[in-house]
Design a binder for these strands. Structure first.
Lengths: 180, 180
DNA sequence: AGCCACTTGTTTAAAGTTCAAGGAGTGTCC
DNA sequence: GGACACTCCTTGAACTTTAAACAAGTGGCT
């Protein structure tokens, strides 16, 4: 409910303690927001399904293997991996446990910090990635890049970067998933 | 893993049965895709948290109440609601069961089709919506609209509509969540 | 009428995620 | 060196989602 009904008139100015008149979305803003949510929901569903079918894991898990594969010695500290994937450490713990059970990741102790753990991509994990990457890229292309002009691709990147940055402010005390 | 490594050379042309050389993402495409996934993940987390805190339900459930509230007689057939929300009927069944338990939705039999069910927004459900809508719009504004120029908002709408439409083709046999 | 393919919505179990709590290690401050 | 705050990661329970199977109803066809 991004707009309940048209406001009767000008809102009461700000000096009082009462809540501001909500800044409802305009019709146009609502259309944008609806398209956004629909696109994201459908895309999420589509990629999850594609990867579950072809790689035996959800999109997020696949993304974790990718991050590990791109990292030096194919390993990352748990919190660092959570930060890169924009998820909570709890979620990551469960995910890595499952990927470990599947044999695609193993854990290693961190020598420098006895609290720390590395998640390490196994050879099997790398192999799964190698075999399923082409199909996944193709799915992403078909759903996204093949349908957008170069200018639209550029815009999308800029826009989503702005949104992403807005949600991870530099200030201390920000509510970031990987620090929860 | 949107690109494993640089292809050695020109791909083998299409007449053979072997798999095509994957169309890896360029560096620029990868940046776009990464921003997109990060933005979506963070936004999803942010709105889920905001609504869980203020309305006691996840974002998807809130969206269901909104759809019901916008509909004639505040009711929709299950499959129609699933189609609007871009989710599976199974997921919707569970969600409505939970919303019913919370008292915000009730079910009603469809007189015309004995298989059918309406999900109906209760007065309490409407009340929750009324009270939490302002906070939610504000969250959406702060995270998205306040940060984007009018032109960017327009682009985002167009882009996401293209993606959404691409994932729900008109053809029969399309793999649409609400028909699974 | 009876058959058959299809639609509608739910159910069960398994998988994944969130939330709150906690154990262990680190680092700082006095 | 001891107290204290903080970081790192995990755990278990509650909740949500997925996947597969199913019961019931519909509609077309003969």
């Amino acid at each position: 409910m991004e707009r309940m009904k048209a406001p009767a008139s000008a809102p009461s100015p700000g000096s009082t303690a009462e809540p501001q008149e909500p800044r409802w979305l305009t019709d146009e803003e609502q259309r944008v927001w609806r398209s956004f949510m629909e696109g994201v929901t459908l895309l999420d569903d589509h990629l999850d399904r594609q990867l579950q079918r072809d790689a035996g894991m959800p999109h997020v898990y696949y993304g974790l293997l990718v991050k590990l594969g791109e990292s030096p010695r194919r390993r990352l500290r748990m919190t660092e991996l959570a930060r890169l994937a924009k998820i909570t450490r709890s979620r990551l713990s469960h995910a890595i446990a499952r990927l470990e059970k599947s044999g695609w990741v193993r854990r290693e102790d961190c020598p420098d910090d006895k609290r720390g753990q590395f998640a390490v991509l196994t050879e099997e994990g790398y192999e799964v990635l190698r075999q399923t990457a082409p199909g996944h890229v193709e799915a992403v292309r078909q759903a996204v890049f093949d349908r957008l002009s170069p200018q639209q691709q550029k815009s999308l990147g800029e826009i989503m970067q702005i949104i992403a940055e807005g949600l991870q402010p530099a200030e201390a005390g920000a509510d970031l998933p990987w620090l929860r």
